[in-house]
């Protein structure tokens, strides 16, 4: 089972400034989005899951292993994470070598690593860029390379921190499909995102963080229904949800098609 258990998690960088104020959560194989304004503690939380930070209080178990008892490098076999800024990781002069770096580190053989990397690059539609220097490509392409570099590690748990930054419509579609496919393959996917339309489309579950606390946790429909609570955390409903709410519908529509189907049935 791909399970993350978070028990009474508290964290502070400095004494007296608590960033996370007691969280109890369980994640299973599903696609979860974490939303909240900057400073709510989202990135801190996923860094804790990744073992990059250690809890000040409480415990995190990744597939039964306590994050305080294994090194980050060891944990990398179980849990992959795509960071916000691709320039923080890219150092190889060829796209393929960059993508193979992680797989080789966690013990995949040369052939296996290469196969996984080529497959991941194909998913990101970067097959024609395999031998190019990543720094000759655009920022949005570099971001897709970093996503490929994590996919190639084939971990059971994948975390995305703001995957859609600087992506256009096609890039977003690609990332959307990746998240859905990973979830369909039984992986545990956690995505931090600001784009509510994107969140509505990719997530089975949505968690709202505000000032280090979970203020909402439920299905996307349940969470986006509570626009009063969302507003208090400076968040908005997806565009289609806003329109339908104003039109007086008492249920949450998360996608255009959903709304059109409902109207058709209504008439």
């Amino acid at each position: 089972m791909n399970r993350i258990e978070v028990k009474n998690l508290r964290f502070s960088y400095r004494r007296g400034e608590e960033i996370l104020k007691g969280m109890d959560l369980t994640f299973d194989s599903e696609s979860t989005a974490i939303i909240g304004q900057n400073g709510a503690g989202k990135t801190t939380f996923v860094k804790l899951l990744k073992g990059l930070l250690k809890p000040t209080e409480g415990d995190i178990f990744i597939k039964g292993k306590n994050t305080t008892e294994v090194t980050v490098a060891k944990l990398a076999k179980e849990i992959g994470m795509v960071f916000q800024n691709p320039n923080d990781q890219i150092f190889k002069s060829k796209v393929i070598d960059e993508v193979m770096f992680g797989p080789l580190n966690i013990g995949q053989g040369m052939e296996e690593a290469k196969g996984n990397s080529l497959k991941a690059l194909e998913l990101m539609e970067l097959s024609d860029k395999v031998d190019e220097n990543p720094y000759d490509l655009s920022l949005s392409e570099r971001k897709l390379i970093t996503i490929a570099s994590i996919l190639a590690m084939d971990t059971d748990i994948v975390i995305f921190d703001e995957p859609t930054i600087s992506q256009d419509y096609f890039g977003k579609i690609r990332i959307k499909n990746i998240v859905k496919e990973l979830a369909a393959r039984g992986k545990l996917v956690i995505t931090i995102a600001h784009d509510m339309d994107f969140v509505a489309e990719i997530s089975e579950r949505v968690i709202v963080l505000n000032k280090g606390e979970v203020i909402l946790d439920g299905s996307a429909e349940e969470v986006f229904l509570r626009d009063d609570i969302l507003k208090s955390a400076y968040l908005e409903q997806p565009n289609i949800t806003q329109l339908c709410k104003r039109l007086g519908y008492d249920r949450t529509f998360l996608a255009l098609k959903e709304f059109l189907d409902y109207r058709l049935a209504e008439n």
């Binding site: 990744k50 490098a73 992959g80 994470m81 923080d88 990781q89």
Partner: peptide, 16 residues
Amino acid sequence: AVGSIMDAQRSRGLET
């Protein structure tokens, strides 16, 4: 910035 780079590389299994 070195801090975030270290995080990103350790996340890909690099022992530092």
